[in-house]
Design a protein around this nucleic acid. Sequence first.
DNA 1: TATGAATGAGTGTTCATTCAT
DNA 2: CATGAATGAACACTCATTCAT
Lengths: 197, 197, 197, 197
Amino acid sequence: MSNASTLPTRKDAARNRARLLKAALELFGTQTDVTLKDVARQAGVGVGTVYRHFPTKEDLLDALTSDQVTLAVDIAREAAAESDGWQGLTRFLEESMRLQVENGCLRCVVDTGEPFSPVIAEARETIASLVQQIVAKAQQQGTLNADLDATDINLMLLALVAVLDATRATSPDRYRHQLALLLDGMRAENRQAASIA
Amino acid sequence: MSNASTLPTRKDAARNRARLLKAALELFGTQTDVTLKDVARQAGVGVGTVYRHFPTKEDLLDALTSDQVTLAVDIAREAAAESDGWQGLTRFLEESMRLQVENGCLRCVVDTGEPFSPVIAEARETIASLVQQIVAKAQQQGTLNADLDATDINLMLLALVAVLDATRATSPDRYRHQLALLLDGMRAENRQAASIA
Amino acid sequence: MSNASTLPTRKDAARNRARLLKAALELFGTQTDVTLKDVARQAGVGVGTVYRHFPTKEDLLDALTSDQVTLAVDIAREAAAESDGWQGLTRFLEESMRLQVENGCLRCVVDTGEPFSPVIAEARETIASLVQQIVAKAQQQGTLNADLDATDINLMLLALVAVLDATRATSPDRYRHQLALLLDGMRAENRQAASIA
Amino acid sequence: MSNASTLPTRKDAARNRARLLKAALELFGTQTDVTLKDVARQAGVGVGTVYRHFPTKEDLLDALTSDQVTLAVDIAREAAAESDGWQGLTRFLEESMRLQVENGCLRCVVDTGEPFSPVIAEARETIASLVQQIVAKAQQQGTLNADLDATDINLMLLALVAVLDATRATSPDRYRHQLALLLDGMRAENRQAASIA
DNA sequence: TATGAATGAGTGTTCATTCAT
DNA sequence: CATGAATGAACACTCATTCAT
């Protein structure tokens, strides 16, 4: 939870930092156009406190993203540890989506060209490499289409996140259906040469 | 009160409206954070003119959406006219995405809970109903999974749009791969009972 | 008064620009730490109007300075036209100070290393060159110390401005005494070899 | 209530006060827009400590000024002790400027109408009185213009400080030229009836 | 007592919207 | 009608000052 680059020694400071990240997660997870005053109010502190912990709005978002990406790295690691590649892939997608359902700030796992901090870039690379391992394993085991790579998996996540965001208010489980379809489409035995030109 | 000299004004007004929508499409299709001054400049008119035609920024976006949804309705209608259901479905998705590639304002075809105007709501319903027809036909013909409905298709579009938006700058064709996967996953013969819990 | 780089075509816009410059002159001429809200209030307009005319606080100050420096150029030109060099020098100093008494924004005639716009830089060079002419003429005519140059004159102005600013509230004419002393010190016939080590 | 264990604290407090003043002098002497956090960091203490010693930013500046004015009083006293009035005057100006070159906080010796503390006011009066003695002596000895008084001398200092501040970065000795001119202008024998109207 | 975290009024600046020309 | 100047609420961010640790 606490970033390596910042070390809030005092207890109350650490608590405020956590509160701020929690508040920010709650707000940015569901809306865009969140002001820092909103975050401060939600966290029950003054604006100045936001700036003490995060010198810039960008920095707050980076910290938020870092936290989520760190959790995502753990998920990828556990998924890569599965001996069955297909199982690993399924687990990676499902657990990542569970993270998004709970926190709603996963957008950033995929590199969309937006500015990001080194920490995030590194985590992304780690995830990409782990996913690549999972993909390779599943392909060797003959359960995954040969024409997929790590980027496809990341984009799938992005797609599912979009679905979740759109349906969260009315039927937050809906994305699972899409995930099922995608998984079916990814099975090696289901590949259709003529699906698309 | 109305005389001959005021007639050409109507033409001008219509032309300005078209110009504004074109300008807005060009800008909102690729960026966010577009100001109305930007739109006015792109259209070659003053800000006041924007407000004459669209009392509110929201109204402009609604009009933009309406245009796109209208085009989407046409696509859906043509797709529904195909005798082969699977073909119709494929066509609907591919053509809709082509629209998004070109115009970039398809976000709104799916109801995401955001406020929208009656005309958009109506068009959405029309599309939903047409897609439902396509889906039913394909299912009757035994080519489409039985557990899919029109909403799934719309959400698929939403997902693909997210992929396109993220990859537009670097590899704008990437979404086609995701589409292929989804199509494979949707084929009746490929349905896996155990894909997901 | 109106800058060449900006062309306020409308009458009311031009009036507001003039009002803003007037208000800014009144405020910046006597105080530091003036906010743009202060300027807006003093001018009787909204803050937005300040930004329409001057995209940046710096720009407003630049415009203010430009105006004053332009007036200063005229003074220098007239002073350089005097056939008597000493007379020209006296005139330059007295008239420049009159400008400062009235407007209070002359600080900028001397290059103090702060950022400034090209317009100001150019005007400064023009003034420096004219003052150099005056100095040379007076030195040729044997009325001015040989060891003075245009920079000395500018620094003298700076010094006198400091005196004026400090005494404006209590005895705004006091600077004239300092000016008299400096003029006496500049007369060729009064040069003391041993005045300072 | 007071015991042996609190005694060393006094020493610490005194040392911190000195450190703070030193740090403040270093920062305010060369820049404007110095924050109290800057001062605290430069002094190696926390902000809270600044406020323990100086309840207000203004108070810190007052203390700074007091220190400098005290040094200036010493200079004035030594200068007044010279038997030769002109020598005393020269010494006063040169030494005062040396102070400004080194510390850069002399602004305050002259009453510019800004708020100031009683101790500063008193020191100013002392200086004024000493300078008045020097001036009177030199006038009696026939080396100084009859129309000068202590205020003129203080304003001269102010003027020279302005010159120094403007030229410090590029040619910090430049002010000496202005000083030479002023001294020449102040010599009784160089008085020109017609220097200024 | 020293520390530095917390505070919030205040800055410069933007932009949707209104209104005089 | 079209224009673009005027408006002011709102934003990201700063900093003198207070207060919990």
